[in-house]
Design a protein around this nucleic acid. Structure first.
Lengths: 222, 222
DNA sequence: TGTACATCAGTGAACGCGCGTTCACTGATGTAC
DNA sequence: TGTACATCAGTGAACGCGCGTTCACTGATGTAC
């Protein structure tokens, strides 16, 4: 006879004190993030699995979220916030514009490679909140609205490239278009690398700076 | 009283003639592809949904596939074959090496943008067949094995870049690494564009050739 | 030419499961009198 | 100080659903004699 010992994880959660019931919303999002980090795709992270992870019953979630979609949206917002924060921190760290552009790109890629499941999750679920309906025609208009949750992180990139251009450090004739190209490269790097872990990738450092510099029309840094 | 008319789609499928039962395998893969094209993620394409689409009962599938995973693998193989074929066709169409490199990239991207669901599907499901277990250390070793179903299409890219280099048309000091960078760019272009359809993307033509040329270290074509 | 039989392509019913969501509820904690 | 009551944080049981998979089967078609 063999036993399958399911780790019941008795996890003696004690209920929040009176008036602190709102804390559960945070615990729910945190639990969902833990599930994503554990390798589950955005679809494996079910409402019931979250409840199990947090240590509550499934119906308890409905006091804090209208439905499953609202949880997914909350997770996406949180992940995007994290990316934006890390990129902004790197970009604002000082140095000449080229250095700051490259630091921002590094921060973006580092986040993606450190948290491949989170990065993947935000591109697997719906990225646009349901209330954003109009179709923008310019970059500014797009970033101004709430069209794409990650718009801020991307705008940070555009701004640093424009700075390079203004400082005469980039011969980019169209910074907006080149920022898009860089973003495409960064996204491709993260998603291809973490999707194909058996591929003999060159080390990140050797690929990133040089290729971003090429796309940005920037003289290679020393 | 309101009726929900589910299009029962009586689809009078007649059984395959004697000895032609094997045809059903093809119909199953074709049906699954239709489901993917219709917008379903790789997980929405369930065994029962496929059976419904093809017009057979669910158990009939087991005569041709061991389980659901085997169908998914068959689909992935088919899609990769299609990409490889289109890239090889474009690369082999003639012209100077740079022209052929760019044509190959265009073919890759065109496929991805024409069939965003198919492209997404192959990167959502497991890409490595279960029998490939060793971990390669070089590009050649990787492409030699069956490690990644899409290896052939990528190798096509490496070869055309090496040709450019040999013909003195590229100042790439490391064609393998630059081919990786290009692939990353192409993948990023396809997957970001088709994931974010509300973003004001510049037209493909204006982005592709120029940026690939930059990454390849190739003098911009006229 | 007729008939028994094997083969083949595919079915229908059933299984146990996990899902999202609903409903009426419980039991601890603070508050008013 | 004691007690009735409202509020709050969360439950347990149940619903209908679609899933992958299994099992024993059916009914048409070709073949041997």
């Amino acid at each position: 006879v063999s036993y399958l010992v399911t780790t019941t994880e008795t996890r003696a959660r004690r209920r929040n004190p009176r008036g602190m019931g709102g804390h559960l919303a945070g615990e729910i999002v945190a639990g969902a993030l833990r599930l994503i980090d554990a390798g589950g795709s955005a679809e494996t992270v079910t409402l019931r699995a979250i409840a199990r992870e947090v240590g509550i019953s499934a119906p308890s979630i409905y006091a804090h979220f209208r439905d499953r979609d609202e949880i997914v949206l909350a997770i996406a917002r949180k992940i995007f916030d994290e990316i934006r924060h890390r990129v902004a921190e790197a970009t604002g760290a000082g140095g000449d514009p080229v250095k700051r552009l490259l630091a921002g790109c590094r921060a973006y890629v580092d986040f993606g490679l450190e948290h491949p499941e989170r990065y993947r999750a935000i591109f697997t679920c719906e990225l646009t909140p349901p209330d954003a309906r109009s179709t923008p025609t310019s970059l500014e208009e797009f970033a101004g609205g709430e069209g794409f949750l990650g718009a801020d992180a991307f705008l940070e990139l555009v701004r640093s490239l424009e700075e390079c251009s203004r400082a005469g450090l980039s011969d980019s004739s169209d910074p907006d278009a080149d920022a898009v190209a860089i973003w495409i490269y960064l996204h491709g790097l993260v998603s291809l690398r973490s999707g194909l872990d058996r591929f003999p990738w060159p080390p990140v450092e050797s690929m990133l700076d040089g290729n971003v510099a090429k796309l940005a029309g920037v003289r290679r840094p020393a």
